[in-house]
Amino acid sequence: MNHGRRILWTRVAFIAGLVGLLEALCRLHVIKPLTMIAPSQMVQELIALAWSGELAEPALQTFIEVGASFLFSVTVGGALGAVVHALPRVRRTLDPLLASWYAVPFFVFYPLLVALLGLNVLPLIAIGVVFATPAMMLSTLAGLDRVPRVMHKVARVHRLSQLQEVRLITLPSAAPHLFTGLKLSFAYSFIGIIAGEFILSGGGLGYGISYAYESFETPKMYALMLFVLLIALVANGVLHVWDRRLARRRGLA
């Protein structure tokens, strides 16, 4: 525990040092103000933006899109993973597709999705789903593969019903991998959607950044970039802590 705390504080100090260095470089104009504003100014700018209410609308749009994409990919990806796991032939057929899924640069399909779904939030959610679902599917497959065979035998010995087996045996054994799937689904939904907003000019935080950049509003641009960074950090931190807690519980059980 003590060791863990030492790691945490070193990490905090390291990040604080980097931010401090950046602050100094910007304040001393080693980095030109046109290139980058100091971190403290980014924070001020972000607070001003939030206070004026300008932040609320794009942030809300992005949150709704990411939430929709995340929920959809987790449920559909999980379900598809379970179905494909039960059908080895289908799995073998899909294997090359899944293995090279993330080698395909998907952002090139944005214009196609706009043509299919119209110029609204749907293509943005769709790109998040396309990006995130296979990750959940692959994690589900990996999780189900790692349920020890002896556990299924235990279930049969105890005459568990199908539902009980899933609840008491399959889910707990596959949990670490499913959790990785959740983490990846969130990350990929977030990345896909922000990138989509950026490229398609579809509103939301990504569009806000590209608009601020094109109209030379450098401070606003950095404030929004900081906000996106903070969301990613907070979400990651929460999932990291939750993962640790689950791992500890497994250790105790």
Partner: peptide, 29 residues
């Protein structure tokens, strides 16, 4: 090991950032 433990979550977070948003910064630099 210690440096790795300190660095790993930082790297994980960096991996989650939508890097497209960094493109204006890259162009400016």
């Amino acid at each position: 090991r210690f440096a790795g433990d300190v660095a790993e979550p930082i790297l994980g977070s960096l991996y989650t950032i939508p890097k497209v948003t960094l493109y204006p910064l890259m162009l400016l630099v």
